[in-house]
Structures are given as structure tokens and as C-alpha cells.
């Protein structure tokens, strides 16, 4: 019952966030300087006649009072209509849909690689010898501080043009996914590894860990069976970081490796001032954030049942 109520509250909160996001996109459209009708017809250079503009305004409801436009805006979004791209002249949902698979593939590969690296390094080095911890700490710092785009350039310089191990551009089978995924994963691994190791070292000092050791448990069993589960919780709560790092990283990575994907779609849309596409991607990211957050909250309850009462 409490869990159900908790989920209910979370859904409501998520809906609130999406409503806010939709409102924000409306405000952006409304307050952007320039005539949206001109943008629809094809930018300033198109020089459309006043009649054409008036027709477009009527068609898009741009001549209505703001609250009617707002209501229409919300209603369109609820129905899954994010408008039409100024540049591509196709529905935004279609434009995004065509690119989604490639980005999801990249994001999942990057997240899985990053998480695996972080967990492995943290488990292996937390509360070990000084030099080992120092080494891991330095590696994490460098990885977390390296911008994705430069990491990509270095990876390309070494592995594509130097050693000729992997292709330099995307979309050519699994081998072409290796460098982009690594490029996305390393900074994530740096940040997560740092958080995880600190949290693991804190947990390993807890009395229940000493108790477990005093029962005759080996070090590996103590780390995996007792400590890891506790140490994972901060990672799970970093939803905002995860979504941001993967989507933001995808924008850069796709551009750098000239891969298909939502990120590249977004960059070309920003360059072309194609507002509907930009806002569509932003709304989508908010939706992803809300959904992931909900999943994370449930996951969190599963990891730490004590929270059930608190919720």
C-alpha cells in the first residue's frame, strides 16, 4: 500500500515536471524574437507575401490569444505532436524517431562500459594499498576531467589514424561503435568510479563490515556481498547526472565521429535555428529523465527496504 502510494506520488510529480517542461518550451517559442510564421515559411531570406504569412498564422493558430495557444500547445504535446521541423519540413517526432535507435545504442553501450569500469576499479582498489588507491584516484581524476570531444580526438589520433584499429566514422557495424562508446564511457567511469570508491571506503569502515569480517568472511565476500550494495546507492541517485552525461555526451560524440543520432540532429537544428526540433529533443530528454527517475526510485526501494517506511 505504501509502495503504491509512493508510486502514485512519484507519477504525479513526474507529470508535474513534464507539464513544467512543456510550459517552458511554450515560453521559449513565445518569447523568441522574430516571427514564427516566417520561420515556418523558410526564414528571413524566403521573403513570403503578407497573404502567405497570414495564412500560415491562421493555420498554426498564431493569431489566437496566448492562453488559447498555450492550451493548444499542451494538447498537441499530450497527443505526441511536437510540431514540424522548420528545416526538414517533417514532423519532429518522425525526425527524432529516425535517429533514436542509433543514440540509444550508443548511450547503452557507453553507460554499460562506464559502469562496469567504475565498479571493477572501485572494488579492486578501495581500501587497498596506498599506491594502488593513489593510482586509481589519479586515473579517475584525469578521466573525469577530460572533455569528451578531446578524448575522442585523442582516441581517433591513436586508434584510427595511428594504429588503424578502428574506423574513424560511425555507422559501419560493431567495430565503429567501440571508439564512440569508449569516448562516452571514460568520463562517466571517472566520475562514477570516484563516487563509488569514496562510498565504498566509507562503507568498509562501518561496524557491520567489521562484524562480517569477525565472522570469518573473506575480503572478496565482504566487498561483494556486504559493501557493494551499500556503496551503489549514491550511483543510483545520480539520475540527473546519468541522463545529462549520456545525452550531452551523445551530442558531442555523434558530431565528432559523424554518427547518426539525436545529438547530431540537435546540433544541426541549433545551427539552423530549427526551434521545434530543439524543443522536441529537450522535451524528450525531460521525459527520459522523469521515467528514469521513477525507475530509480523503485530500484532504490528494492536496494534499501528501510526507505519503504520513510516513503
Amino acid at each position: 500500500m505504501t509502495t503504491l502510494r509512493f508510486i502514485g506520488w512519484r507519477l504525479l510529480a513526474g507529470a508535474g515536471v513534464l507539464w513544467g517542461a512543456a510550459t517552458l518550451t511554450f515560453l521559449v517559442v513565445h518569447f523568441t524574437p522574430g516571427d514564427p510564421a516566417e520561420a515556418v515559411v523558410g526564414g528571413e531570406g524566403a521573403a513570403p507575401t503578407p497573404e502567405v504569412l497570414a495564412q500560415v498564422r491562421a493555420e498554426y493558430g498564431l493569431d489566437l490569444p496566448w492562453y488559447q495557444q498555450y492550451a493548444a500547445h499542451l494538447w498537441r504535446i499530450v497527443r505526441g505532436d511536437f510540431g514540424t521541423s522548420y528545416r526538414l519540413h517533417t514532423p519532429v517526432t518522425q525526425a527524432i524517431g529516425e535517429q533514436a535507435a542509433a543514440t540509444v545504442e550508443l548511450a547503452l553501450a557507453g553507460a554499460a562500459t562506464g559502469l562496469t569500469l567504475a565498479v571493477a576499479v572501485a572494488l579492486a582498489t578501495a581500501r587497498r594499498r596506498r599506491w594502488l588507491r593513489g593510482l586509481a584516484s589519479a586515473a579517475e581524476l584525469v578521466a573525469a576531467s577530460t572533455p569528451t570531444f578531446w578524448l575522442g580526438i585523442v582516441l581517433l589520433t591513436v586508434f584510427s589514424f595511428g594504429l588503424r584499429l578502428f574506423p574513424a566514422t560511425g555507422g559501419q557495424g560493431p567495430a565503429s561503435l567501440v571508439l564512440p562508446a569508449l569516448c562516452l564511457a571514460l568520463p562517466i567511469a571517472g566520475v562514477l568510479g570516484h563516487v563509488l570508491r569514496e562510498s565504498l571506503e566509507e562503507v568498509l569502515d562501518e561496524p557491520f563490515i567489521v562484524s562480517a569480517r569477525a565472522r570469518g568472511l573473506g575480503d572478496a565476500a565482504v566487498r561483494v556481498r556486504h559493501a557493494l550494495r551499500h556503496a551503489m546507492t549514491p550511483l543510483v541517485t545520480m539520475t540527473g547526472y546519468w541522463v545529462g552525461a549520456l545525452l550531452g555526451g551523445a551530442v558531442v560524440t555523434e558530431t565528432l565521429f559523424t554518427r547518426q543520432g539525436i545529438g547530431r540532429l540537435l546540433v544541426s537544428a541549433v545551427n539552423a535555428k530549427d526551434l521545434p526540433v530543439v524543443l522536441g529533443v529537450v522535451l524528450l530528454s525531460a521525459l527520459v529523465y522523469v521515467v528514469v527517475n521513477l525507475v530509480v526510485d523503485l530500484l532504490y526501494l528494492a536496494i534499501d527496504p528501510r526507505l519503504k517506511e520513510a516513503a
Partner: peptide
């Protein structure tokens, strides 16, 4: 918070 910083 629902928007990644780079997207915003």
C-alpha cells in the same frame, strides 16, 4: 533539473 545542462 529534468533538462541536461548542455541541452538547456
Amino acid at each position: 533539473m529534468a533538462f541536461p545542462e548542455l541541452l538547456l
